[in-house]
Design a protein around this nucleic acid. Structure first.
Length: 589
RNA sequence: GGUUCGGUAGCUCAGCUGGAUAGAGCGUCAUCCUUCUAAGAUGAGGGUCAUUGGUUCGAAUCCAAUCCGGAUCACCA
């Protein structure tokens, strides 16, 4: 148990002993004492003043004395300022915490590990990945890692939206405009190649609509009647009927896309225990719709389409099968939920999907519950905000998307230029340099996307390149490399006897003990930004410590050893924290 | 219009289970490399916490109303 929990528990115990009143430990507010006051931790007394009928002064003195007796050796002193009870922690306590800690025991202890699925990435096969997908991929990966660090078993999965009208659009455009060209003919990544035909489809569609409107048709009707649109719809129908030629083209174009995706995934470090394809799950979805229809959970309209009425739950009516019998988005997600649960039998299933689909997941969970699927209660939507440009939302049709591959490449290039200009790695081999540029470039990008609260939308300005100073990945990577450099010189074989800690040493010791709590909090709130902020603060604190106090030339051997141990622990904690964000830390940079 | 998320320094964001004088980073200005990696450190400057009202010993934080912005309420996925 960490010190803060102990303090809460003891406060609860002491109040019970003194006044016979039960206060839950969670109700006790323990803060780090503000620097301008004496002490390390503060208990806020106001909350109990009324309940106990004591003045803050009296309560503080009685409680303080009781706590001091109870936690003899840990607490050395207390003082009261207004309603704040400040405790000083003994030097020995912090010294022991440094002494007993090691890179192997940094993580929280989990007595009730769970099996959790994290589904993320979920691309469509009609366009390449963009900046928004990167946020998704990094978030999904990071959440999985954080849950693992917390001691859970994690299964990473991906659902590929490989079917549907949007794929048919690319296919139609390819048939019409490609003259049989392939990605290798054009020296293009397959996902980019196919994405270009999706754009071509939209251009053609727009042109046809404009033409029809010019000939006197209403906009609304023109949008329905555009010939290319009808072709796409027919193709979807043919696809669902298993038409051989259509299936062949579909498989061929998808294989191009997958090649492209694989290259990107490899570069950014995304991986999956299992990849699902919507083309495989939608049929089960249709089957579940059939069952739901029999159980009268769904109902059929006159035109043959199937619906569920969720107005009783404060939502709307929702279609689950079209009148032509084809399935919609939610149909396949119902099937997928069932398939995943059968295959992995997880306690919870986290879907990393943008907040534009909040409604969809509300509906999905509700339908699964009504169908009494075992997966239903474990469904959790990790909703994240869109990445926007200063000019507004990214729109593929208007050419304002930031392409994932381009951005990654650019980041790696910038890190190369910066590294070369600093000239600190002249002893690296060519292969080591390439690895380093990747580590720093991706580190900057991942940290940038993970450092903000997932649920908030964020703004990315392509004009201003992502920073390498301050609250950034490279700053933390640099701090790590710097520590490693020092440790290479000082060695790490040390024995700690005792030492009076200086303020900066103590501050570092305190911050280090917070790591398990941070991991737990990030895991519970599914929020990697908590880890990003913590690692940044730790690195910053170390840098102040480093600037102020010499490690190799410390005042005494004992001091030197304490600082080496603090350095070892800081480096290990930074490494673990960054790994939770999917970011590697170099030994030298 | 319903639902929902947000509005904190010039910019990007923390802080939100109510607690002491609201914090970082970037940018601006100033200082520090013959001494462990300056991708660093130290300091200065910068705020009607959208607005109004309420709850309370105490509100950026909770409640209500209003204003502004996003998402969604699709037979797109």
């Amino acid at each position: 148990m960490n010190l803060i929990s102990t303090l809460k528990q003891q406060t609860s115990n002491c109040i019970h002993q003194l006044y016979g009143i039960q206060i839950q430990p969670e109700q006790v507010l323990v803060n780090a004492t503000k620097p301008e006051f004496e002490g390390d931790y503060t208990i806020v007394l106001f909350a109990f003043v009324k309940q106990l009928g004591k003045s803050p002064e009296v309560l503080g003195n009685e409680l303080g004395a009781a706590m001091l007796a109870e936690m003899n050796g840990v607490l050395t002193n207390f003082n009261i300022v207004k309603g704040f009870l400040n405790f000083s922690i003994s030097n020995q306590f912090w010294f022991d915490s440094i002494k007993n800690a090691s890179p192997e025991n940094l993580l929280p202890i989990n007595n009730a590990p769970r099996k959790i699925m994290v589904e993320y990435s979920s691309p469509n096969t009609n366009k390449p990945l963009h900046l928004g997908h990167l946020r998704n991929n990094f978030l999904g990966w990071s959440i999985a890692e954080i849950l693992k660090l917390q001691g859970n078993e994690v299964v990473k999965t991906c659902i590929v939206n490989d079917r549907g009208i949007h794929i048919c659009k690319s296919m139609i455009a390819w048939q019409l405009f490609a003259n049989g060209a392939t990605p290798s003919d054009k020296h293009q990544k397959g996902d980019h190649f196919v994405g270009d035909y999706y754009v071509k489809y939209n251009d053609a569609y727009k042109a046809q609509v404009a033409e029809l409107v010019a000939s006197g048709m209403t906009q609304e009707l023109a949008e329905k009647e555009a010939p290319i649109q009808k072709e796409a719809q027919e193709m979807l129908l043919k696809w669902e009927q298993g038409d051989v030629a259509t299936m062949d083209l579909w498989k061929r174009m998808n294989s191009w896309v997958y090649e492209g995706f694989d290259a990107t995934y490899k570069k950014i470090g995304s991986d999956f225990a299992k990849t699902y394809y919507e083309s495989n799950t939608y049929l089960l979805g249709k089957e579940l719709v059939e069952q739901g229809l029999k159980k009268k959970i769904f109902y059929q309209k006159e035109d043959g389409s199937v619906w569920i009425d969720l107005t009783g739950d404060g939502l709307d009516e929702k279609i689950v099968r079209r009148k032509d019998g084809t399935s919609v988005y939610i149909t396949q997600d119902i099937g997928l939920a069932e398939v995943k649960q059968k295959e992995f039998n997880t306690d919870a299933s986290i879907y990393v999907v943008g907040d534009e689909q909040n409604y969809h997941f509300k509906v999905l969970k509700l339908i699964c519950q009504k169908l009494q699927l075992p997966a239903a209660d474990g469904i959790y939507h990790l909703s994240y905000g869109m990445v926007e440009l200063p000019t507004g939302k990214m729109k593929s049709r208007e050419g304002t998307v930031v392409d994932a591959d381009d951005l990654v490449e650019e980041m790696i290039n910038i890190s190369k230029v910066k590294t070369e200009s600093l000239g600190k790695v002249s002893d690296f081999t060519e292969a080591q340099l390439i690895e380093l540029y990747n580590t720093i470039g991706l580190g900057a990008l991942k940290f940038f996307l993970l450092r903000v609260d997932p649920k908030k939308k964020m703004i990315f300005n392509p004009e201003e390149s992502i920073d390498f100073h301050g609250f950034t990945g490279p700053f933390i990577q640099y701090t790590h490399a710097r520590i490693k450099s020092i440790l290479r010189k000082t060695g790490t074989g040390i024995t700690l006897i005792s030492s009076e800690l200086l303020p900066l040493e103590k501050a570092l010791a305190i911050e280090l003990t917070n790591f398990p709590a941070v991991i737990n909090e990030a895991a519970e709130t599914l929020d990697p930004s908590k880890v990003a902020i913590y690692t940044f603060n730790l690195a910053k604190l170390f840098n102040s410590f480093y600037a102020e106090l010499s490690i190799a030339n410390a005042e005494s051997e004992e001091k030197k050893n304490v600082r080496i141990k603090l350095s070892i622990l800081t480096a290990a904690t930074l490494q673990k924290g960054m790994s939770a964000l999917g970011i590697a830390v170099p030994e030298q940079m």
